[in-house]
Design a protein around this nucleic acid. Structure first.
Lengths: 246, 246
DNA sequence: GAGTGGTCTAGACCACGCC
DNA sequence: GCGTGGTCTAGACCACTCA
C-alpha cells in the first residue's frame, strides 16, 4: 500500500493559489491579495505565506513588485529568430511587424582571448581578439546580450574594431573586409541566468536563458567570428529549416 | 551621482559562497558546511543562511539532500545533438563513444489531436492522430522525453502505430511507408520544467529544459510527423551547420 | 501616512540519512 | 542517537509605492 504524507502547508497554499490563477480568478496583470491578508485567510504566519508565493515566483507564474503587490505575470509576445539572419542577412524585423528593434553598443575593446574563444577561433600564438559587446532591445525592452569576437590581427583598424554601429550587421561588415564566408556552425544550450544577466535582461524569476553561439568560417575553414548571444528564454523561439536530402 | 544601497546580507553570503565554489574551495560532489555552522560563521540566523542557500539552489550551483547535506553539483557530460540525425539518420551514438543509448516506449495510442498538433499537421476534419511517447536514456539516465504525432489515416495499421521499437528511428519508418520526405522545420525553446518532468527526467533544482519540436514535410508540403522532445537542459547542446550561401 | 513586499531574528519541532 | 535539511511561528523593522 502506497503511503503519501500530506504535503507541507506552504505547498498546499501554492497549489490553491495556482489553481485560482489558472482558473482565471486572478487574471494576468491583477494583484494577489496582500501577504497579511493571505496569512489571515489560510490561518498561517506571513513567512509561510511568503514561502508559498516564492514557489509560484520560481515557476514564473507571478512576480512581486516591492511596495505595490504581487501580480499574475503577463505573457509578452514571443520573438522568432531564424537562422536565415546569418546566411541571408534577413532582417529580424521582417517577421515582426509593429515591433521596433534597436541595439546599444556596450563596449568594443581588444583583449586577450579566453580559452573558450581561442579554441573557437583556432588561435595559437597571437591570441588577442577584438570583442564587440552589444545589448539588443525590442520596443525598448532588453531581450538579448550578444558578444562577438574577432581575431585582432584581422580586424584591427577596421570598422569592426570601432565602437559604432555596423550597418547591416557584423556579417555584412566581414564581407566588406573582403572575406568570403563559407559556412556557419551554431550551438544552442540553456541555463539559468547569472545575477547580472537577470538585471540587464530584466528577467523575471524562474526564467532561463538560451545561449546561442556560432562560428563563422571563411574559405579555407578559417574561423573569423565567434559570437555568444544570451537570450531571454521566455521571449525567444529559434527556427531552423533544412531539406531532407542534404 | 549613482547611489548603490548595500546588498542584503543573504545575498552577500550567497555571493561569498558562490565565489568559494567557483574558486574550488568546495569541489563538485562535496558538501557545504551545515546550516547551523554557516549561521555561526557569518553571525546570522539560520533562516537567513537558508535564504542564501536557496539562491544558490535556484542557480543550480548546489543541491540540498534532506538528512545528508548541501552538495556542490556535479556536471555530467554534455550530449551533443546534431540536426544531421534528422536528415541523414546519423546515429547519435557515433558522436558519443562509450555512452550507451536506449529508449523506453511509454505509450503508442490513437487520440484526438490537440489544437497545437492539429495546426502543426495541417489537420482539418479528420483530426485523429497516433502518438508515440518515448523516454530516451543514456547509460540508464533518463535524458529526454519525445512525443511524435502522425495523422491517424496515414499510419493506422502500420508499424508506426505498433508499440514496438522502430529500427532506424521514426524517420526511417516513414520512408518505409513509401513517403518521400522533403524538408524539416525545427523549433527550439526553453522553459522551467513541470513537476512531472522534474520527476521523470530526474532534474535537479534550477535546471531548465530545452523544448525541441519539428515538423517533417513530405513532397507537396504535406506534414507527416510532428514531434516534441523535452530535453534535460543541463546535459544537451544542439548543433546546427549550414552553408553561408544557401 | 497607509499599505505593500523585503529582510531578519530566535527560537521550535519534524523527517531523513547514517552509524 | 545525532547531525542534516525541511517546516513553521510571532513577531520586528525597513524600503518602496501611491494617494
Amino acid at each position: 500500500m502506497e503511503f503519501r504524507p500530506p504535503a507541507p502547508r506552504y505547498l498546499q497554499v501554492a497549489e490553491h493559489l495556482r489553481e485560482a490563477i489558472l482558473r482565471g480568478d486572478y487574471k494576468p496583470g491583477e494583484a494577489l491579495p496582500g501577504e497579511p491578508q493571505l496569512a489571515q485567510r489560510y490561518n498561517l504566519s506571513r513567512p509561510t505565506i511568503r514561502q508559498a508565493i516564492a514557489a509560484l515566483r520560481t515557476e514564473g507564474l507571478v512576480a512581486a513588485e516591492h511596495g505595490r503587490g504581487t501580480f499574475v505575470r503577463e505573457r509578452r509576445p514571443v520573438l522568432q529568430v531564424s537562422s536565415a539572419y546569418l546566411t541571408q542577412g534577413a532582417q529580424w524585423a521582417d517577421q515582426h511587424p509593429g515591433l521596433v528593434a534597436s541595439q546599444v553598443i556596450r563596449e568594443v575593446v581588444e583583449v586577450p582571448a579566453t580559452d573558450e574563444v581561442a579554441v573557437a577561433l583556432h588561435l595559437v600564438g597571437e591570441t588577442r581578439v577584438v570583442v564587440r559587446r552589444r545589448l539588443m532591445l525590442v520596443d525598448d525592452d532588453p531581450v538579448q546580450l550578444a558578444d562577438s569576437y574577432y581575431p585582432a590581427e584581422l580586424v584591427r583598424d577596421t570598422p569592426i574594431a570601432d565602437p559604432a554601429k555596423l550597418p547591416g550587421g557584423t556579417i555584412a561588415a566581414l564581407k566588406r573586409l573582403g572575406l568570403t564566408l563559407d559556412r556557419f556552425e551554431e550551438y544552442v544550450a540553456t541555463r539559468m541566468p547569472a545575477p547580472d544577466e537577470i538585471r540587464t535582461l530584466r528577467l523575471a524569476e524562474g526564467v532561463p536563458v538560451i545561449v546561442l553561439s556560432w562560428v563563422a568560417y571563411a574559405e579555407g575553414d578559417t574561423p573569423v567570428e565567434y559570437s555568444v548571444a544570451t537570450l531571454n528564454g521566455e521571449r525567444h523561439r529559434l527556427k531552423y529549416e533544412f531539406p531532407a536530402q542534404p
